[in-house]
């Protein structure tokens, strides 16, 4: 089990980061939502393996929660928003795709350097993966900053959240269930609020391109 568990965790954690980087590459909003669902599956797998390994019922419940919310509810909600304007493609991002991939590589390197002390604190196999969580957070942030459409930015925000969750699973075998529950509810709330906001934006301006908003400052 241990060998299989280690392999599974390695695979899933790398998958979380790989999906985040892939998000930088894809422009189709619906593809981004699909990537988000994939990331939710991978994250839930990490939590589930950690739960089985630690015989931790709470973590198991968390894994189920992650699966339901991050691989189920949230992508479904976002998918509905994305379907409202078919052919919704991200225009040219603020930084073009090759450049943002290079930047992502640099961010991953930075995360590895910065995350090294975390591994040194408690040298186990799973903490060695902690920089992957950090790298996912940074990549998500990059996605958030460079995308023009509000929906893509929501995806960026959720990738950040997934990165934070991955880091906690890897470092401490998950935070207490109640905290995870609170965090998940927050994410759900953000998605619901932004859905409503995007609906209003589309009704008012006929689009969800955020560059138009700069006229709104004082």
């Amino acid at each position: 089990m241990s060998g299989l568990g280690d392999g599974l965790i390695d695979l899933a954690a790398v998958a979380v980061l790989a999906v985040a980087v892939a998000g930088l590459w894809r422009r189709d909003v619906r593809a981004l939502v699909g990537l988000l669902r994939l990331q939710g599956w991978a994250l839930a797998l990490v939590a589930a393996v950690a739960a089985v390994r630690g015989r931790d019922v709470g973590l198991g419940v968390t894994a189920a929660l992650v699966l339901v919310v991050k691989a189920g509810v949230v992508p479904v909600l976002l998918g509905r928003v994305a379907r409202r304007d078919p052919g919704a493609r991200e225009g040219a991002p603020l930084i073009n795709v090759p450049a943002s991939l290079v930047i992502a590589a640099a961010l991953v390197a930075l995360a590895v350097v910065v995350g090294a002390p975390l591994h040194a604190l408690d040298p186990t196999a799973s903490t060695a993966l902690a920089p992957l969580g950090l790298a996912t957070v940074l990549t998500g942030y990059l996605l958030l900053v460079t995308r023009r459409r509000a929906l893509s930015q929501v995806v960026g925000l959720l990738v950040i959240d997934n990165g934070i969750a991955l880091t906690t699973f890897l470092l401490t075998s998950g935070v207490p269930l109640i905290v995870e529950l609170g965090g998940t509810l927050d994410v759900l709330l953000v998605v619901v609020v932004i859905r409503a906001l995007l609906g209003t934006m589309r009704a008012r301006f006929g689009g969800i391109d955020l560059d138009g908003l700069s006229e709104l400052r004082d």
Binding site: V114, Y141, L144, L210, D211, S214, L216
Partner: peptide, 25 residues
């Protein structure tokens, strides 16, 4: 500094996070 662009505000936060990471790391 505040020209109304959402991306710029987000970038401020991102850059601040990176600086903190580099300084602390």
């Amino acid at each position: 500094l505040a020209n109304g662009s959402v991306h710029r505000y987000l970038a401020y936060g991102f850059v601040a996070l990176l600086i903190v990471l580099v300084v602390l790391g």
